[in-house]
Amino acid sequence: MATGKPIRLFRNLSSKIAAIPMILTVLFVFVGGTAWTVTYSFTSSKLLPKTKFVGLRQYERLWETERWLVSIENLMIYGLCSMVLSLLIGFILAALLDQKIRFENTFRSIMLYPFALSFIVTGLVWQWLLNPDFGIQKIINGLGFTSFEFNPLYNSDIVIYGVLIAGLWQGSGLVMVLMLAGLRGIDQDIWKASRVDGIPAWKTYLFIIIPMMRPVFITTLVLIASGIVKLYDLIVAQTGGGPGIASEVPAKYVYDYMFQGQNLGQGFAASTMMLLAVLIVIIPWAYLEFGGKKRG
């Protein structure tokens, strides 16, 4: 046919051209980089990548290393506590701010302020605050409570909780703002209906409002989770991984082996393990969320 249909490839041509740089970035940098890393994790690369394949040797070494095991344990503790506590703190703060109080904007800014600081600054600030010689412990001792001891950063059993405090201080504000936006999206008539029904406020939150905020919770969880997996700079600034190796985390392990230990193969193996862990969480979730039958 002479006048035939326009060729599908050329439809919306300008938007397709505009998308090309991002498509290339995704293909070469993200997908390509990931594939390259996974491939070289099976080699004995040291300072420079080389293609001498050694099978699963790097992984065997990885799981025999004490430092990696401590890293994994720390990430689990930090991740679980940070997920639960920042959701809890963020939601409670948002619920309190949602009571039509005065100076709401001021409070919101104060709570969100730590989020404007980088992890490096946060880590340094809390390193000082938790320092027994001139931080919180010193102040409370100075008030007369001489037996008071709060010194997490120099105690290898609880050092990760010291990092957790800083992480929560930095991240809860963002969770609060997201939750507040979610609460504001709830139809006020729902609140009125539950008051007429005589349902106490905490029950309304628990059984009606929070289930209605499911999309906000998912967004928030994704943001918190991505922050947890890439936890690195906070550790570097606050503890440097110490005392000893007590506050090491996987991302730091990867960085140290790749760029300081001059052991690329080991670093790649560790980062592949991190990728695997993330996929194990994401794939079942994505299947539940997007797979199966479509929801209305």
Binding site: D187, I190, A193, S194, V196, F207, I208, M212
Partner: peptide, 14 residues
């Protein structure tokens, strides 16, 4: 009293 709202205000997940 019982009350009925313009936006229905039903509890969506029940």
């Amino acid at each position: 009293i019982g009350m009925v709202f313009q936006s229905y205000a039903l509890y969506p997940q029940m």
